[in-house]
Every structure is written in C-alpha cells, then in structure tokens.
Amino acid sequence: MELPDDLLYTRTHEWVRLDGTTATVGITDHAQCELGDVVYVELPDQGATLERDAVFGTVESVKAVSDLYAPVSGTVAEVNGALADQTELVNQSPYGEGWMVRLTVAPDCDTSHLMSAQEYERYVQESGH
C-alpha cells in the first residue's frame, strides 16, 4: 500500500495535499484497491462550497458505491475533468493523475483532525478494512 508522507488522510479514506490555500483531494491507494476497477466518478460543480465532512461526490466500481467526504472546508476551484472518461486513473495513479477536486481553503485551515501517513496506516491495519 503506497502512502506518501507529504499527505494527510481521513478515516473515510480520502487524502489531501495542502499547498498554501489550495487543497487537492483524492482517495487513497487502499481505497481504490478495496473498490476495484473504478467505472464512474461523480464530482461537484466548480464553485460549490463544501463544509468539512460533507459528501461532495461518489466513486463507483462495478458493484460498489462510495461517498466522497470533504476532508476540509473550502470552495471547489477545479475538478479533475479527465475522470469523466478515464476513471482508470483513480486505480492507476490515486495520488497523481487520479486526484478528484482542488479546493480553495482558508489560510488558517484546520487540519488537526486529519491523520499522518503513519497514523492512517495504523488505522487501516487496526480496523481491518
């Protein structure tokens, strides 16, 4: 299971990369592995405002649907349009080309509830999923 050190993680298996006031969000390698081949990704419109923990979209494999939860509050600045017809990017490159949304967040964005790579790894092992 690939877990980049420079990202923060949620209990609902999203990752977030914080760069100034831009937060890039996707799902983890573990999550894509559990889902299997992703066949559909539903993302919000640009400009949508998201509260932390709000559902902002869904990701589907052939036989499962998972909600996507916003790791932090923010406004949708960009969605990954490539996922409209290249859903396999989520499986092939979950932390790279498979990213889902970029949010504009407040400069003092609270990340204290998010996990580090080590914490997330332990969480996945302990919860057995």
């Binding site: 052939v62 036989k63 499962a64 649907v65």
Partner: peptide, 14 residues
C-alpha cells in the same frame, strides 16, 4: 447484468 450501482441491493435508500 450491468449498470448495477443504481440498484437497491447496492445503493439501498439511494
């Protein structure tokens, strides 16, 4: 059978 994620056994109340 395909496009199954619309259905009740997967998506339940949605």
């Amino acid at each position: 059978m395909t496009l199954r994620t619309r259905e009740q056994d997967i998506r339940r109340e949605r």
